[in-house]
Amino acid sequence: MTDAQTQGPAGEGTEPDPRFTFANERTFLAWSRTALALVVAGLGVVQLLPPFPGVPWGRHVLGVPLIVFGAVVAVAAYGDWVRNQRALRLGRPLPRSVMPWLLAAVITVIAVIAAVVVLVSALR
């Protein structure tokens, strides 16, 4: 191992430009804040919304998946950071992340479920 090779997430490759390392770190932190926002949103739905008439489980159906997804986002963000950092160290193209697609999909599903809960509540 040469002096240029230092230990990183993968313990391989060379130290990349610090600006790229900083950018990767900021991306991870941004996803972390997104994860915290999802947790708070889920908690807010459960605690702050008034109960849906006729749908007593409505708040938990909406809130609990948001909280769970917040934890998933935090773990996935770390995985993304490790993969990106490894690609930077090896000089390879950055891998594509599924997280933006996943976030959009989950929010869409939650919105649809929210609409259903509201409709069911209104009909009862």
């Binding site: 770190e25 972390s32 947790v39 908690l43 938990h60 909280i67 769970v68 934890a71 770390y78």
Partner: peptide, 21 residues
């Protein structure tokens, strides 16, 4: 450090789940 941040968020989510439940 970053792993610790991710682990802390998971712990916060677990606490939130308990509070929600």
């Amino acid at each position: 450090q970053l792993k610790l941040v991710a682990a802390t968020i998971v712990a916060v989510a677990l606490v939130a789940l308990v509070v929600a439940a």
